[in-house]
């Protein structure tokens, strides 16, 4: 704490260097990390493909399906909550859309719409339960994770032949078509969601509320921010984003397994944290989460291209997560400590 209120402002304004301003951005650490990881895999590459457009198409397709969910997960984390059911929701929504389209013969588009409505409902339940019970969202969504996983296995273990239903071709154009050097359209969805989330966070009233409810719930309530509505909306967005990925997978792979997405919830959280989100809430960015998703995409593809055993991917992710948190904590301290 300092007590320098009486000093003139001009000389003190000079202390805020461009560097400090840059350091204060939550995504800086992730950006530096992405450059390092890219260089690493470009050098270690055995196929000569990683640093080409084809390689880019390859790793962005992984990054896109991670990033589509990681961005709303980041918003939710900024808002001070977790969603551990986001991964399994990918599987649940893919299965649901597939079941509705094949077994119940609804056609793919109505099935997709119903699935989004269902996902919104799950998000609503997550949000309501967290708000109503006052339990940590970690526990509430963990319970949801296991419930959905059980339902997935109970209802069906595998769905195939989803490309024989009505509306498959148009759905494929929207969710799973390819363009350029093999880029999937999911990349467009991902960039779009990142852009919208960034706009909401920095340039809308709702964004201000997200930071506030995660930063200090009581202060937010005292100043008239609708805390419940804000947090529940974030749960709904996360759940619906997971459903989008579920549908993308269903249409792209033409089949769905009950186990899909399980384990992904931590990948989303890793992306968000690598991107500068604080686990305690109130701080982070959507662009950061997308950069985090890119690092994960590069790791998955890069390790294969380097000819290494892909079983090591998760070790790599673990190390990346740890380094990212260290770097972010250090940068965060410098950015705020340098203010003295």
């Amino acid at each position: 704490m300092s007590a320098t209120t009486a000093a003139p402002s001009d000389e003190r304004l000079a202390h805020v260097s461009t560097l400090t301003r840059l350091l204060r951005r939550p995504e800086l650490g992730a950006l530096l990390g992405a450059v390092v990881v890219f260089t690493l895999f470009a050098v270690a590459d055995q196929t000569g493909q990683f640093a080409t457009m084809g390689g880019l198409a390859n790793w962005t397709s992984v990054a896109a399906t991670t990033g589509i969910v990681a961005v709303p997960v980041a918003l939710l984390m900024i808002g001070g909550e977790f969603d551990l059911s986001a991964g399994v929701m990918v599987g649940t929504s893919g299965l649901l859309a597939g079941l509705l389209a094949t077994e119940y013969g609804l056609g793919l588009w109505p099935a997709i719409l119903l699935t989004f409505a269902f996902a919104a409902g799950i998000g609503l339940i997550n949000g309501w339960l967290v708000m109503l019970t006052g339990l940590p969202s970690f526990i509430v969504t963990l319970a949801m994770f296991f419930s959905l996983r059980g339902i997935n296995l109970g209802v069906t273990k595998l769905l195939t032949d989803t490309d024989r239903v009505d509306g498959y071709d148009s759905a494929k154009a929207v969710f799973a078509s390819q363009f350029g050097s093999g880029f999937y359209i999911a990349v467009v969805w991902w960039l779009l969601i990142t852009a919208v989330a960034t706009f909401v966070l920095t340039r809308s009233r709702f964004g201000n509320w997200i930071y506030a409810v995660g930063g200090d719930k009581i202060a937010a309530r005292n100043t008239g921010v609708p805390v419940r509505r804000t947090k529940i909306s974030l749960f709904v967005c996360t759940s619906m984003a997971a459903a989008l990925v579920g549908i993308i997978n269903l249409v792209r792979l033409r089949s769905m397994q009950a186990g899909q997405g399980v384990g992904e919830e931590f990948t989303f959280i890793i992306a968000a944290v690598v991107g500068g989100c604080l686990l305690t809430g109130g701080y982070g960015s959507a662009i950061g989460a997308s950069i985090g998703a890119s690092i994960i995409g590069m790791a998955f593809i890069g390790i294969a291209f380097a000819g290494w055993n892909t079983d090591w991917t998760f070790l790599f992710l673990g190390v990346i997560l740890f380094i990212a948190v260290l770097v972010n904590t250090y940068i965060g301290r410098r950015a705020q400590g340098a203010r003295k």
Binding site: N208, Y211, G215, A219, N222, G282
Partner: peptide, 15 residues
Amino acid sequence: ATVPLMSVWRNFFLG
């Protein structure tokens, strides 16, 4: 009354 991690102006207009 204020959210520590938010900027001064964002806090000022919060809500």
